[in-house]
Design a protein around this nucleic acid. Sequence first.
DNA 1: GCCTAGGTCCCGTGT
DNA 2: ACACGGGGCCTAGGC
Lengths: 256, 256
Amino acid sequence: MGLRIFKGLETDNAYLELKTSLANNESVIIVGDCEVEYYGRASSTLTRGERVVMIKQDGSILVHRPEGYEPVNWQPPGCLFKVDSLNGLLKIVATRLSPHEVLTISFHKVYVMVCGRLYDKGIFSMHASEDEMKEAIRLNPSLIEEGLRILTSEKDLGEAGYADFVGEDSKGNFVVIEIKREVAGEEEVLQLARYVNEAKQRVNRPVRGVLVAPSLRRRGQVLLEQLKLEFKALTPESCKRFLKKVPRLSLLEFME
Amino acid sequence: MGLRIFKGLETDNAYLELKTSLANNESVIIVGDCEVEYYGRASSTLTRGERVVMIKQDGSILVHRPEGYEPVNWQPPGCLFKVDSLNGLLKIVATRLSPHEVLTISFHKVYVMVCGRLYDKGIFSMHASEDEMKEAIRLNPSLIEEGLRILTSEKDLGEAGYADFVGEDSKGNFVVIEIKREVAGEEEVLQLARYVNEAKQRVNRPVRGVLVAPSLRRRGQVLLEQLKLEFKALTPESCKRFLKKVPRLSLLEFME
DNA sequence: GCCTAGGTCCCGTGT
DNA sequence: ACACGGGGCCTAGGC
């Protein structure tokens, strides 16, 4: 690791180092006293204060205040950087082309600057998402109801969108299934209703619609009853527990 | 500024410094080689790689890979930290109480560590959001239609939620107005429909519903027609241009 | 480019 | 605590 670390740099020296770093596509962290302006979909100003600015190798940039999860200002990956040194200020202009947005950071003081390429080939894997619920249901449709058979996943229903699953119940009814990892509401019921209506026009037999989620909000319950749809409570945790018990294909194999 | 900066610390020394920093409620930035685990609403693992970890004064923590706008793992403000040094590893455990979630970061190597309190009393101000559209419309309802009068803003419509505005047109009809800063869709039409239905039960005269947004998606258009609601195209930019021309009260004065 | 759908979304606000 | 609405949301996938 060849990180270059600078303490208490004058802004004009910081400018030179930063220019080199950006030319070499390095990551840069700057801690210092700055002000920030943004113009684009919205616009904002932030007066002077001490912050952490992170520039990443993919052309993203974040301005972090000493509190809060979110960056106060930022630019997503792929933006263009221009740096300048004038009147004792280190100026960083990060421009995004589409939509056209400009972020300008002006450092009055640079306390610390860390420059260097970071090597990260680590593998990130996530679990207990909607995908895991889908896999569990595919392997064991009786998690939703006894006798259910899954026919297709991610069924294209044209204008209506994509149903998570379509299947068939023990009585031969067509079943459209929409799965949510979290508590569902009106929006999710409406989504299912679209799929069911579309399916009714395509299938020459009774069509049921089942919303699968950990729970359903009051408004969603009202709409669900009006539209004569059904709800089945199921949590990602219970799906995960089920998957643990079953020797199974990997998610990747499932996807192909 | 009294930032403490450490290069190439052994993990056990990093542990001691980090413990002191957290006890003093300082911000900490660590650049190093680490692995990460998360368990909570979902769960994830991330194998070894070089990353930037930021701990903030409000108890939030972010793990940033060298690419991407978003942190790969994180914990929002208010979490509890526990640090440990064992087997040559610096271990940081950040726990959130509700929902119960645990983030564990294990550093194999610490390249740089920066510790210190940051002072940021800067003032952040945002413009051209939905609020600015509302203010422009309030000052000049004819941006929506000639002869419109605004009666109240944020009218409480009980179960149905809050309409952005209610007003009265030149023919004495009651008008419910929903404003969106961005392209609107089905969801926004549905929201307006709720407000209109609620208003109809409360007002003893014809009720119109107008959705105001830069544009309306196809699906939204269909639903809008079905529900006999109306759409008026208006962009935040045009509202901003209007506001610039008018000497006006501040947003704060408007809010009271 | 637009549109759809999801997220450990986060965040404020109100009940 | 839950629910609802908003965000410069961001991100990924399809067309």
